[in-house]
């Protein structure tokens, strides 16, 4: 045991205590991820924790804790219960809106203290590279000819992927068979293995299969193209199909209800420093995430608009809690 301590300490140099702002964390910060280990939100939380460690941005360590039960309900309700706590933060994805709307748990983002929006994740329509569909138009025509026979794979049920599928169906008069899987990586592999016909995966989940020539991106679900290197040749859905179907996913950070003002200031400054590191920027570029740092009023406004949007989209798709 002693040996292990020594060894661990060799590798894991503990962070020094810098002098700084008026308020600073006085104990380890619990960073709640309302999803399982290994997903997009989990990755970003651990990246932030790692960057903080590497650049000594926080006097105390950031401890990532996964509470993914009930499509994130476990994590949200846990943070909601920590009123006034200055040492807990939570990273959210679209389940910030979808989980309360679909399951009816007593939670709203208004219960939390908004800190910062770090990025927005894109969605792309993918098909298997062996299929003859070179453009979104060709694929959609094929789906239209044979309704309820093409399978669309996605993550979970009544979450972003299904919302997007329903949006696409309603805008273009299509009918897919939606097959829910546990995680984005699994979805893309089922596409490579030809078990589903198309997916709406995030760019990073399918990127390497694309480079290996196994899948083909047809269109980006956004109002403009992804401005990063190899991604910029993919047309938007509007360009490819004429229908304006767009959706992006939040990667934002919140604190518990009524978090002290000084703590909020510290976290906002901290997250900005993390955002500006070359490591974080590289992560955004590699994953074709949309750089979208925003705080306070701008962030709140965005979240409000998107809550309304999710309500409308889910009502249209019949996904609201009955």
């Amino acid at each position: 045991m002693k040996l292990a301590t020594a060894l661990a300490l060799c590798l894991v140099a503990s962070s020094a205590v810098p002098a700084g702002a008026a308020w600073e964390p006085t104990k380890p910060i619990e960073f709640v991820v309302p999803a399982g280990t290994g997903g997009g939100a989990d990755q970003m939380a651990r990246l932030i924790s790692g960057i903080a460690e590497k650049h000594k941005l926080s006097p105390r360590p950031i401890i990532v804790v996964n509470k993914g039960g009930g499509a994130g309900a476990e994590g949200f309700l846990d943070v909601k219960g920590k009123k006034g706590d200055a040492h807990t933060i939570i990273i959210t994805l679209s389940n910030l809106f979808t989980t309360p709307l679909h399951t009816g748990i007593p939670f709203s983002w208004r219960d939390l203290t908004p800190l910062a929006r770090m990025a927005l994740d894109q969605f792309i329509l993918w098909v298997n590279a062996e299929t003859p569909y070179k453009t979104a138009k060709e694929y959609v025509t094929a789906v239209k000819d044979k309704p309820t026979s093409f399978k669309m794979g996605g993550t979970g049920s009544a979450q972003e992927d299904q919302i997007l599928t329903i949006q696409l169906e309603q805008a273009l008069g299509l009918k897919f068979i939606y097959v829910p899987f546990k995680g984005g990586g699994e979805v893309c592999v089922n596409l490579v293995g030809n078990h589903v016909d198309s997916t709406v995966n995030n760019p990073i989940e399918c990127a390497s299969h694309w480079k290996a020539g196994r899948v083909r991106p047809l269109a980006v679900f956004d109002t403009q193209r992804i401005p990063v290197a190899e991604w910029k040749d993919i047309p938007t859905v509007k360009e490819a199909l004429g229908a304006d179907v767009h959706y992006v996913m939040l990667r934002g950070i919140f604190g518990p209800p009524s978090m002290p003002k000084e703590a909020v200031d510290w976290y906002v400054a901290f997250l900005k420093k993390v955002y500006d590191t070359p490591e974080f920027q590289k992560y955004l570029t590699d994953g074709a995430l949309k750089p979208a740092f925003a705080t306070s009023a701008e962030y709140v406004k965005w979240v409000e608009e998107n809550e309304q949007l999710h309500k409308e989209l889910m009502a249209k798709g019949g996904l609201l809690k009955k």
């Binding site: 045991m1 292990a4 301590t5 661990a8 894991v12 104990k27 380890p28 619990e30 401890i63 804790v65």
Partner: peptide, 21 residues
């Protein structure tokens, strides 16, 4: 082992709060 190396927080009480953990 838990708090320091593996960074797994355990339930804490008044003593730990007093010690600033």
């Amino acid at each position: 082992i838990f708090e320091k190396w593996f960074l797994v927080p355990m339930p804490k009480g008044p003593l730990e709060a007093w010690l600033g953990q």
